[in-house]
Simulated scan of single mutants.
Amino acid sequence: MKDKIINPLLLLLTAIIWGSGFVAQSVGMNFVQPFTFNFSRCIVGGIFLAIYIMVMGKGSKKSKKSTEAVFIGGLCCGLCLFGGMTFQQIGIQYTEVGKAGFLTAMYIVLVPVLSTMFLRKKTGIHIWLGVVLAVVGIYLLSISSDSFTIVKGDIYEIICALMFALHILVIDYFNTKADPVKISCVQFFVCGILSGVFMMTAEQPQVQYILAAWQPILYAGIVSTGIGYTLQVVGQRNVNPTVASLILSLESVVSAIAGLLILDQQLTQREIYGCICMFAAIVLAQLPIKNT
């Protein structure tokens, strides 16, 4: 019963952290290129968690089985996280930012479909209605006009959504088999190393520019990555992956509110309706209705 209250709150906190972290990502990209930024923030996040584990995890019992689950789970999560981050960053160069955000958030549709197909997770009708409401809400928040055409960048964003959906499902599978904090730590190093390989081959990283972006990198690395993604892994325990994806999708609402409060941006009536739809979707998905 305690987990049913705390874990969704942890996922909500994750959405708040991610939504408010867009400012740091935007500022960081003024100094360094995408793979360099992802490499830096993932390595910072991994080091941050490694220190936390060493300080807090002394004397903890280990088993060969749990150690294997940590590394296998971390590897799978890291591959999905790298794929999601990479395709999102590539796609956003060829499509509108609003449309990219909408298509990326389509993981909320892919998660219940994939979880039913591969994990045999049942999704109640009220959760499906919540998914539909959330899609409408994200559309109102992300798309500024009624015209919607598919271009090359949109395909990359759809693949990104698939990778993030798989990321949620992989977490759902592994987070009861091993320490979620350790899984999260491994995933950051996997994602960071892969980003580093592409950074060295596709970009020209320069130390002075990385140092110039130290503040957004530290914030994105410790808060958005180290704390945010770890809260996601911990919060998903015993939570239906579809419900988890809906709560995490509130990131788009938080982003809009952060823009209002921090950047003095104004919410249009369309965006206000989008926020209402998103909140209604989360409330509907949390109703204690037995799945059939």
Rank of each mutant, 00 (worst) to 15 (best):
V254T: 11
I168D: 05
F148T: 09
K121M: 10
T116W: 03
T230Q: 01
M29W: 02
L231R: 04
W18F: 14
L133C: 12
Q204D: 13
G78S: 00
I183L: 13
C191G: 07
Q93E: 06
S144Q: 14
F37G: 06
Y209V: 01
C275A: 12
L141E: 11
V207N: 07
L169F: 12
L13G: 11
K290I: 15
S40E: 08
D3V: 15
S115K: 02
V151N: 14
Q93R: 15
P180Y: 13
V27R: 05
Q215M: 15
K152I: 09
M199F: 14
S245R: 04
K290T: 12
Y209C: 01
I171M: 03
I257D: 04
G57N: 02
Q206W: 08
L260P: 15
T268E: 05
D154N: 09
I127K: 15
Y107V: 00
S20Y: 00
L211H: 03
I159H: 04
D154R: 10
W214Y: 13
I43S: 06
P8S: 14
G19Q: 02
G192F: 11
I262F: 04
I282M: 07
L211G: 00
K122S: 14
Y229Q: 10
G221F: 07
L287P: 01
I47C: 09
I53D: 00
L261F: 06
S252R: 01
K65E: 14
C277V: 10
G57L: 02
F22N: 07
F31E: 09
V223C: 11
P8L: 06
D3S: 12
I138C: 09
L75G: 08
G130N: 11
K58H: 10
L267G: 10
V170Q: 01
M106R: 04
D172G: 03
S147Y: 15
V131S: 10
G84T: 03
L260G: 00
F118Q: 08
V135M: 07
V239N: 01
I90G: 04
G19E: 06
I17Q: 11
V223M: 01
T149N: 13
C76M: 14
K65I: 12
A256R: 03
L79M: 07
T86R: 07
G124D: 14
G91R: 14
M199G: 03
F189E: 09
N240V: 12
I72D: 07
I90R: 08
C160H: 15
F37N: 07
K99P: 02
F164W: 14
T292G: 15
L79V: 12
A213V: 15
I159K: 04
I183D: 05
L260Q: 03
I92A: 06
T201W: 15
V151S: 13
S26G: 08
Q187L: 04
G228V: 10
F87M: 13
I72E: 11
V207C: 12
I159N: 00
A212R: 06
L10M: 15
I210R: 09
G59T: 03
A69V: 01
F148D: 03
G192Y: 12
L13Q: 09
I257Q: 08
F37E: 02
